[in-house]
Simulated assay, not measured.
Amino acid sequence: MAIARAGEGVQSVERALNILEVLARVGEAGVTEIAAELDVHKSTAFRLVSTLEGHDLVEQTGDRGKYRLGVGMLRLAGATTARLDLVQEARPICRQLAADTGETVNLAVLSENSALYVDQVAGSSSLQSHNWVGQHIPLHATSNGKVLLSELDGAQLDAALATLPAYTERTITRKSRLRSELSRVRERGYAEAVDELERGLTAVAAPIRNAHGDVIASMSVSGPTFRLADERVAEAVEQLLRAAGEVSFRLGWGRRS
Rank of each mutant, 00 (worst) to 15 (best):
L38W: 00
P92R: 11
S125N: 07
A82K: 15
G254F: 08
A35F: 03
S220A: 14
L52T: 04
R232P: 01
G213D: 09
V87M: 09
L48W: 00
S183D: 13
T32I: 10
A162D: 10
R186H: 08
L74C: 01
H212F: 07
T142I: 11
N131H: 12
R232S: 09
V105A: 10
R177V: 12
A191N: 03
C94V: 10
L127R: 15
G213S: 11
V58D: 04
L164W: 04
V204Y: 01
T104N: 09
T225C: 00
E238W: 02
I172C: 07
L201G: 01
T81D: 10
R250L: 15
A24N: 12
T44V: 10
T173V: 15
L52N: 06
M73P: 00
A206R: 05
L182I: 04
L52P: 02
L20A: 02
S180F: 03
G200V: 06
F249P: 00
V105N: 11
G102N: 07
Q96Y: 08
T171K: 03
A79N: 14
G7Q: 07
L86W: 06
Q128M: 13
A193E: 02
E53C: 07
R47F: 10
S150M: 08
T61L: 06
V105C: 12
E112C: 08
Y67V: 06
V215S: 09
A193L: 13
D63V: 15
L17D: 00
V13E: 04
H55L: 15
M219T: 11
A35L: 05
A2E: 14
R232F: 04
R83Y: 00
E53M: 13
G70T: 10
G9A: 09
V26M: 06
T163E: 15
L97I: 08
A229Y: 05
A29L: 10
E59I: 07
E14H: 06
S176R: 14
E192I: 15
A90C: 13
R250P: 00
E192L: 15
Y117P: 01
R186Y: 05
A203K: 03
Y190C: 06
D230H: 12
Y167P: 00
E187K: 14
W132S: 12
E169Q: 14
R232H: 09
G72I: 04
R209S: 07
E28R: 15
S114M: 08
D214S: 12
S248E: 05
R242D: 12
A236R: 01
L178N: 02
V233H: 00
V13S: 05
R95L: 05
M73S: 09
E235F: 09
A108Y: 06
Q135V: 11
L57N: 06
A203C: 12
E235I: 03
F249N: 12
T163K: 14
A155T: 13
L86F: 09
N131W: 10
E8K: 10
L38R: 04
L52A: 06
K146C: 13
A211M: 08
S124V: 11
L240M: 10
G145T: 13
V87P: 02
I34M: 01
L48E: 08
G252V: 14
A203D: 06
S143I: 02
V31F: 02
L164I: 11
T104D: 05
V10A: 11
E21Y: 02
E112P: 01
E198C: 03
